[in-house]
Structure formats: C-alpha cells, structure tokens
Computed example of a mutant assay.
Amino acid sequence: MSHCAHSHPEPIIIEDEPTTQVSTLVEQLAMADAKQSTKIIDKIDSIRRENPENTDILLMYTNSLLGEKRYKEGLKSLSALYEKKPTRSYLLAQCMLKERLGNIDKSCYKEVVKISEENNLIDSDYLTALFFSDAEKFSAAQQELIKTKEFNESDLLVYTRNQKEILLEFFP
C-alpha cells in the first residue's frame, strides 16, 4: 500500500476571515442607502489596507467603487489590481473606464489587442478592444468570427451601438 503526500484533495477555495468579512460587507452594500454605502466602502477599504496582497479583497473593493459610480477611485483601484494580477479583462476595464472619464487612450486598447493576438485569445475582450481602437480590423474580425461560427450574429449585436452607449452600459 503506497502512501500519498495528499491523501485527501485540498479544498479549491479557502476563504480567509478578511475575505469573508468583505464578502458580507459587499452583500450589505447592495441594500444600503447613500450614507450607509460610504461607511461600508470605508470598512472595505480599511480591511483592504490591512491585507494589501489579497487580490480577492482588492477586486471586491474595486467592484464596490465602480458599483457606486466612484469611477476615479475605481480606476486607481483597478490599476492596482492589474499590477498585482495582470489580466486582459482588468486592462480592458481600465481602458473603458479611462475613456468614460474623458481620457481616450487608444494605446490602452491596442495593448489588449496585442496581448490577445500574442496568446491567440480571440474572444469578446479582444473584439471590444478592437471595437474601441481599430474599426477596420474590428469589422474584419467580426466577419471572420461569424464565418467560422465562433460567434453568432446575435452575440455581436452589442457592437451595433456606438462607443459612448457601450461605455454607459458598463459605467452608467
């Protein structure tokens, strides 16, 4: 009989106490009025500061700021999150949020496109970055994805809106 170092599978998610606390606060935020919202976000921020390496808490804090339309603070938090955990989705959200705040930065979108193409990740993040940065390339990519049946035309209806309408959909 052989002995394994791990005889039982490790739990996939181990929620630590601060993450659980923030999760509970986020639930409360959904039902809070404006005054309560500020207090709750301040509590989340305090826990975030005590746990600077916890990206789960930083993500919940970022989403809370964005949900409360505190976009400038949300952008700073999103940038910090991207530094700790670089993902295309976080970068794309930064690009869109910058534009929503009036700072159009096509190079930001082009970086998302570059990362996508380097990793052969042709998905909605890629298409959205193209939509905001390169209309000609977007149109060609859209047609190719329909032709190869990777996307249905109905999947792409969002792109019949203009850029401002899409930004306002994500960040009202």
Rank of each mutant, 00 (worst) to 15 (best):
T24Y: 09
S89H: 12
K147I: 07
H3V: 10
Y109S: 02
S107M: 10
M1C: 14
N120F: 10
Y159M: 03
D42W: 10
A129S: 07
P18R: 02
S79D: 10
N152H: 15
S7I: 14
E50L: 15
C4H: 15
Q163G: 03
N63Y: 06
F170M: 08
E111Q: 09
F138C: 03
S64V: 02
Q21L: 08
L156V: 04
Q28S: 08
L29W: 01
K164I: 14
A80D: 08
Y71W: 09
Q142K: 12
S77L: 03
E153F: 14
D134P: 02
S89E: 12
S107H: 14
T128W: 01
L66A: 06
S139D: 13
E136V: 14
I41H: 01
K114L: 14
P18W: 01
M96R: 03
K76Y: 08
A80W: 03
G74V: 00
H3F: 12
R161M: 08
R70D: 07
I13F: 03
L145P: 00
K114M: 07
R49H: 13
D155C: 08
K85N: 13
E118Q: 10
A129E: 02
N152K: 13
V22Q: 00
K72I: 03
Q94C: 07
V113F: 04
F151E: 04
H8R: 15
L121T: 14
C95Y: 01
E150K: 14
Q21V: 03
S107C: 10
T38L: 13
A30I: 12
I104R: 11
L59I: 06
I122V: 13
Q142V: 05
S107L: 09
E111L: 07
T19P: 02
K69Y: 12
K164L: 11
